[in-house]
Write a protein that binds this DNA or RNA. Structure first.
Length: 116
RNA sequence: CGGGCUGGCCGGGUGGCCGCCGCGGUCCGCCUCUGGCGGAUCGGGGAGGAAAGUCCGGGCUCCACCGGACAGGGUGCUGGGUAACGCCCAGGCGUCGGCUCGUCUUUGGCGGGUCGGUGACGGAAAGUGGCACAGAAACAUACCGCCGCAGUUUGUUCAGACGGAGUUCGUUCAAACGGAUUCGCUUCGGCGGACGGCGGCAAGGGUGAAAUCGGGCGGUAAGAGCGUCCGGCCGAGUGCGGCGACGCACCGGCGGCCAAACCCCACCUGGAGCAAGGCCAAAUAGAGGGACUAUGGGUGUCCGGCCCGUCCCCGGGUUGGCCGCUUGACCCCAUCGGCAACGCUGGGGCUAGAUAGAUGGUCACCGUCCGGCCUCCGUCUCACGGCGGAGAACGGAUACAGAACCCGGCUUACAGGCCGCCCGGCUU
RNA sequence: CGGGGUGUGGCCUAGCGGCAAGGCGCCUGCUUUGGGAGCAGGAGAUCGGCAGUUCGAAUCUGCCCACCCCGA
């Protein structure tokens, strides 16, 4: 994932946590907010409950891979948080969880009609 | 073939497609143009043996720096290795186990040798303190007990001594006297018992985690390392060997344990940590409060030197980039030295540098291990069947775990495998 | 990544070599018409885990585990 698609910095992340929309399923939590740019940015969070360092890194790598393949729409900042079961899920389950949430938030560019 | 670990090592492989981060080359674009930034493309590189826990030791950086004393902390057999260590190697001693030899009181004990494991392994003869309960007693003592002495009291025995009584004999009128005999009456003596006193002893009792060297013989009133033989332990005694820990012989001597209790001795030790520290950019609010120019600050305390004009607190801003940042006590090979850890010399090599954190996803084939319908072979059996081996559709497993300044160790986690060593069985 | 601290019944604490103590809570009984309060009695502890030192460890030492705090 290239640098322009990374979402960093405590201030922006706290702002999204305060003001952004929230949506979740059993494996993941999304928080998202429009950023006014011509591209989207993502931040991946896996806390200690997910597992040890190896498991947390693997979950974040797999999530980055699924987001890369998803064909998201530009203009949004999204925080993707892994929940407790994400360390035990395989790649296919994580991919379905991400596409499920993307469809529900209308982030996928393949959907022609979109909100706002 | 099976079991084990006390060592060393490996810890999935190949290929395709899509992605990530550095490095080098080429090209393109932009800028503040010996340079920097961004993009494309090609080449090549890209987590570990523990990267982990953060338990020790260093390098490096800052605290301006240095010396001495004290406090605090750490280490603790000896010698060596190392940059250093609480690590490693070799040795000593203790301890545990195997084998073997000798001896005895022979399902065992003791001693010697050898092999292997293991040990936070200085000092209890500087001082202070502790050892609950039980027990007489837990560190200087004696409850029961044993023995001696003299005493009081009592039993028993002997008839030995003195005395007494009875019987009888002799002499005699009688008595006295003498002899014999009986009693065991009194006292003494002998052998005991009880009581308290003085003194000696520490063998025995029974408690306890632990009871004042163990066993035999002698010795004694009773006993005791009191003496002696075998053994154990201690010695800041002598001699010899060893660099030394220590060993051997002789000599002297036998009242515990705890220092991961305080402590003593020897040695080491300033503090913080790459979020150290430095630079650039951006932004903001400080004539805020306090200590101070023979005082204040700089280290845990003090002293001495030295340095600084500033130091502390509160409030405000930034959360961007660059350096540090990977060539290092580095890795591999060979010679030589050394028992070894390791070292000298020579040659060759460059082997991650991310910044919320780079190795992933997917497909195919293979490898390893486990189970396994079934097939085949060997063997035992009359047979059913059992045991062992090979192949194999299929199914399952493929661990522990992610660099964050860098090294040396320790500890902990770990599927499976290779080598080595040890033990047992079988075959040659 | 680096540094520091704490683990004792369900909860909060004490204890710092030999007996695990207290409060709140829980259970039973008494009292009350009933409840609360009160009184009496009772249960409930691998002292975070594993080793070691010691005759003996919650306590001393080492290693491990969990949780909490601080740091440009």
């Amino acid at each position: 994932m290239q640098k322009q698609h990374r979402l960093t910095g405590d201030a922006r992340i706290s702002e999204i946590h305060r003001e952004g929309r929230s949506i979740a399923n059993s494996l993941l939590v999304f928080r998202l907010s429009p950023n006014g740019l011509d591209h989207s940015r993502f931040c991946f969070i896996a806390g200690k409950r997910v597992g040890n360092a190896v498991v947390r890194n693997r979950v974040k790598r797999r999530l980055r891979e699924t987001v890369r393949d998803s064909g998201f729409r530009p203009g949004w900042d999204t925080i993707i948080m892994a929940r407790r079961g994400a360390g035990e899920a395989n790649y296919d389950e994580l991919r379905r969880a991400v596409s499920n949430l993307m469809r529900r938030t209308k982030l996928t560019a393949s959907e022609p009609e979109s909100t706002q």
